[in-house]
Amino acid sequence: MNKKLELFLTFFKIGAFTFGGGYAMVPLIREELVDKKGWINNDEMLDMLAIAEATPGVIAVNSATFVGHKIGGFWGSFAASLGVVLPSFFVIILVALFFEDFLKIKVIADIFRGIRAGVTVLIFNAGLRFFKQIPKTAVNYFLIALAFGLSVFLEFRFLSLCLLVFGFVFGLIGQLLKTGREERE
């Protein structure tokens, strides 16, 4: 079979059968890419996930682009990314077509009122999960408090964006200074 078509179909399957994206995809990625196709070995997969997680973007698409490039260059990336995105795209359009009318039914509206409370907890738990992953240093606590405080008290459409850019520059420069100091010593 054509490599690009194979990439497309494999990632289509990964996109169609994982809920939530990101880490939920890891078992299926391992099964499809490492065990069945042998496109990457286990170490390469771990590297790929480390890069996907440490760089901006959607983890699923990062992984697809990465494997696609390794197997089939630019068009391989393209085929794999398209594959991982398309199932979502079709399913969501189908849902979106009916959702607004659906919500007008009283029972459904009640259910979704409950669900919104549940989703709030999901978001809170995601915040806790991210918190557990970061080093517990005074600087990090300060940055969290700063981001929290500013976004609670300021109303500005690009505030999050500015804070994220600030975080990147802050971390980058901090690390450069630290490395420079260590080299001098």
Binding site: F148, S151, G171
Partner: peptide, 26 residues
């Protein structure tokens, strides 16, 4: 890429900011 420590620390720090932002949204 994984050896570029400064860029990685930059992205790591973005994740720290995200924690504060998410708690504000919550």
């Amino acid at each position: 890429f994984l050896e570029y420590k400064s860029i990685r620390t930059g992205f790591e720090t973005v994740k720290v900011i995200v924690v504060g932002l998410i708690f504000a949204v919550v």
